[in-house]
């Protein structure tokens, strides 16, 4: 290995190699749990992926019984996530609009921006405790899917604000000025020029945020409580949800219950991965021109 240019000393070469091995190893180390998690969930969960699981609730089914399903939980999760999005998305998008279009570098905008960052770090259990303290203990409402949605809203807002903010910043300034120059008022410019331009990006952000809050368990345990029966009304009484379904079934020592927990996990991961993939697809397929 010696040439006229001399060679890199063995010590340096070994260090370089060792570093490369470490980097590859680090990546492999991250892939192991990912593959293991996905494999385990599929292997254990596929057994109960049957009609009963999607068609029935756990009403009257004990832990040791076979059969039973997560119908009530799936309905609950879908309703809760829908309500969460309906509340969180407008607030978050408007907040982002304020930060990008109105706030500038003013003190209020900087404060809000800082606290949005802080909000991303709020533990989900604290969001649950807050809704418990406010909605249930102070206002005296009962456990309900809606209370769960309120808790999830707190977790969803900051992610959507950040995603929207980034997308709005990508909208070229010339576009706004072109619209202003035509005499279009600011709010119409924002609603009909800026937001539509950023739409796919915002949609991607919302889908990723939905995928994230959908798997939250802790805040739901404190706010929607728990039921084995179907409750289609998210505004009254305890409601099911996929995460709490898994939590309940997993804490039951009977194998039939454990199997249901795995299938619940498989369905939950399936929905989340679908949302993730769809978000990727939207981001790629409808990428705005000129980027």
């Amino acid at each position: 290995m010696t040439s006229a240019f001399g060679s890199v000393s063995p010590a340096r070469r070994i260090k370089d190699r060792a570093a490369a091995v470490f980097m590859w190893g680090a990546f492999a180390l991250a892939v192991i749990p990912l593959v293991s998690v996905l494999w385990t969930v599929v292997a254990h969960g596929v057994g109960r992926l049957d009609g009963d699981f999607f068609g029935h609730s756990m009403n009257g089914v004990a832990g040791r019984d076979p059969g039973g399903g997560a119908y009530h939980a799936i309905i609950g999760t879908l309703e809760q996530v829908l309500i969460t999005s309906a509340i969180a998305v407008p607030i978050a998008v408007l907040t982002a609009v304020y930060l990008v279009e109105y706030g500038g570098r003013g003190r209020l905008a900087r404060t809000i921006s800082f606290f949005v960052d802080v909000m991303t770090g709020i533990p989900s259990i604290v969001a649950g405790l807050f809704i418990l303290a406010l909605w249930l203990l102070t206002f005296g409402f009962e456990y309900s899917g809606f209370a769960g949605s309120l808790a999830l809203t707190i977790l969803m807002i900051p992610t959507v604000v950040r995603a929207t903010e980034e997308m709005l910043k990508l909208v070229p300034h010339e576009l706004r000025e072109a619209s202003f120059a035509l005499g279009v008022p600011r709010w119409r410019t924002i609603c009909f020029v800026v937001l539509p331009t950023a739409f796919t990006g915002i949609l991607t952000g919302v889908m990723l945020a939905v995928a994230r809050v959908m798997g939250e368990t802790a805040p739901l345990l404190l706010t929607i409580f728990f039921t084995k029966a179907i409750n289609n009304d998210p505004f009254s009484g305890p409601q099911g949800s996929l995460p709490t379904f898994i939590w309940d079934q997993a804490s039951d020592p009977n194998q039939n219950a454990i199997n249901r927990a795995w299938t619940g996990a498989l369905v939950l991961i399936g929905i989340i991965m679908l949302l993730n993939l769809a978000a990727r697809f939207v981001a790629r397929r409808f990428r705005p021109a000129g980027r």
């Binding site: 907040t95 304020y98 109105y102 809000i112 606290f115 924002i190």
Partner: peptide
């Protein structure tokens, strides 16, 4: 436009303030 601007701007600002209010309320 003027009225619309005012309404829209206060809605945006209100949402931002709501975020602050949530943190304080927690």
């Amino acid at each position: 436009g003027r009225v619309g601007d005012r309404i829209f701007a206060s809605a945006a600002r209100g949402s931002g303030i709501l975020v602050l209010a949530i943190i304080v309320a927690i």
